[in-house]
Design a protein around this nucleic acid. Structure first.
Length: 460
RNA sequence: GGCCACGUGGCGGAGUGGUGACGCAGCGGACUGCAAAUCCGCGUACCCCGGUUCAAUUCCGGGCGUGGCCUCCA
């Protein structure tokens, strides 16, 4: 089968051809662990999980290597650690923060139904590779040392800017940032910088005497190199990373390894808004995965809601949409739970094979559901809907129901009595009373006896 | 200011050079004492202005609008 994917490098869809079909290699930029992951962070996690599942389906589960890193060295981390744990020594505070945040991240995304990546490397475990990259780049003339920094010389790379489709002249003309005096060119970026007291520090590359720490960007070049090689198949991340992060990764990796590309295919997921507005802390609409889960949204509902929009489109994250997702998924829960382990429906695979068209795939799921196709459940499971978080939610509701049963049962009995004697005013009054308690009734006629039977549930 | 996306019915959201998915909501019907749930059926859309074409929502140009990047934010 043909998998077609949109490539940011070429700005068009193309047939996916892995370098080695027995080992398809994908790298996705993971979180910088300094705070709760927000719902925007969840998007690439979910989107590339779907791609991972699709690749495993096509090439075999043992023939796909998915690397998603954790960046645990960064200015934001240092600042947050000092702020949150002022009583600890910097090193201990940083370790505590990164470990806690990484654990929280894992907990959050576990609810989203994502498979573990094949490898989840940490930046701090790849300092030696970063140092080696710096040394190589200085040696081959693509980087220079200035003021104890190692800087990448963008003028040494003729097609710098190809991914984000911008030229050096353009960028320099539009630059608003003050240029550090030690830079040769205004767009040169930091590969390595000296550490101030209290900051994480390692022996520096390129003969620099003072200890230092890596710049942004370099960690991904190091980790992808180590785990996937100098050139690999797919590199993914949020669209905001296109520039400068990915552009600079490309520059470092290609110039260090002398390769024409870093990854053949670059994929970027679109941005997310909240209730029609940009998500930002100042607007107070910053939503973390953790909060949504705490509010009682099953992780699978978050996952489904995310996949209802194509990954490259902007998505407007709204409560209304979440509610709709929850309703749909609830109606499919029985199918998930009785799934027979069959292969996923081909119509859904075909939709995904067209640049991960998850909305079209979901439309196909609806068609399966409407046709009563038994393949619905197994296809949903394939897509990462195990039913676990839905069941957990249902059990919680059942618990609430259990606690209310003593109060509800007599009312229902009284209502049935009232109905029998055709006292509908009383019957409706009781129904309203239950409704006010958050109880929804369902009347069904028993086919054998012809009796009306009433079931009830706690409203969402 | 430069670069880049996007603009489809009440809402969400695919797709296509020529019979305009799918879901939610809505409407009609069945069922019901009435509802809810369920089942059956139904309608409505391609931002604006030009151009190319036998034919454009789909291609091209311009405009307007929204969003993103250029500020270590996915």
């Amino acid at each position: 089968m043909v998998l077609r994917l949109y490539n940011t490098l070429t700005r068009q869809k193309g047939d996916f051809q892995p370098i080695d079909p027995s080992n398809v290699r994908m790298y996705v930029c993971g979180p910088t662990v300094y705070d709760y992951a927000h719902i925007g962070n969840a998007r690439p996690v979910i989107v590339f999980d779907v791609l991972f599942r699709l690749l495993r389906h096509i090439y075999g589960p043992d023939h796909v290597t998915y690397v998603r890193n954790i960046t645990d060295v960064d200015d934001k981390i240092n600042a947050r650690a000092a702020e949150r744990y002022p009583e600890l020594a910097p090193e201990a505070a940083i370790r505590k923060l990164t470990e806690e945040t990484a654990a929280q991240f894992h907990k959050d995304i576990a609810a989203l139904g994502v498979l573990a990546p094949t490898v989840e490397p940490r930046a701090t475990e790849h300092i030696l590779e970063m140092v080696e990259l710096c040394d190589t780049l200085v040696k081959n003339g693509h980087a220079y040392v200035a003021a104890d920094h190692v800087l990448f010389d963008v003028s040494s790379m003729p097609d710098y800017g190809r991914l984000s489709n911008r030229s050096l002249e353009e960028m320099e003309a539009g630059a608003r940032v003050e240029v550090a005096p030690y830079k040769k060119g205004p767009m040169d970026f930091v590969l390595w910088k000296p550490s101030k007291p209290g900051e994480p520090a390692w022996p520096s590359p390129a003969g620099i005497k003072v200890p230092g720490r890596p710049g942004w960007h370099i960690e991904c070049s190091a980790m992808s190199w180590k785990h996937l090689g100098k050139v690999f198949d797919i590199h993914g991340g949020g669209i905001d990373l296109t520039f400068p992060h990915h552009e600079n990764e490309i520059a470092q990796s290609r110039c260090a390894h002398g390769t024409p590309v870093m990854a053949n295919l670059w994929m970027h997921n679109g941005f997310l808004q909240v209730e029609g507005e940009k998500m930002s802390k100042s607007l107070g609409n910053f939503i973390t995965i953790h909060e949504l889960l705490e509010d009682g949204w099953p992780g699978e509902v978050l996952r489904f809601n995310m996949l209802r929009t194509h990954y490259r489109q902007p998505i407007d994250w709204t409560k209304k949409s979440l509610e709709e997702s929850a309703r749909i998924l609830d109606s499919w829960r029985p199918a998930i739970e009785t799934a027979n382990g069959n292969a996923p429906a081909q119509s859904v695979i075909d939709a995904l094979a067209d640049d991960l068209n998850t909305p079209a795939a979901i439309a196909e799921l609806h068609k399966l559901a409407n046709a009563g196709d038994p393949g619905l459940g197994s296809t949903l499971r394939f897509l990462g809907f195990s039913g676990e978080t839905l069941r957990a939610k249902a059990e919680k509701q059942a618990e609430t129901a259990g606690a209310m049963a003593d109060r509800v049962a007599p009312l229902i009995a009284a209502r049935l009595e009232a109905r029998k004697r055709k006292d509908f005013a009383e019957s409706d009054r009781i129904r309203d009373e239950l409704s006010a308690m958050g109880i929804a009734l369902k009347d069904t006629k028993n086919k054998q006896t012809g009796e009306i039977e009433t079931t009830w549930e706690v409203m969402r």
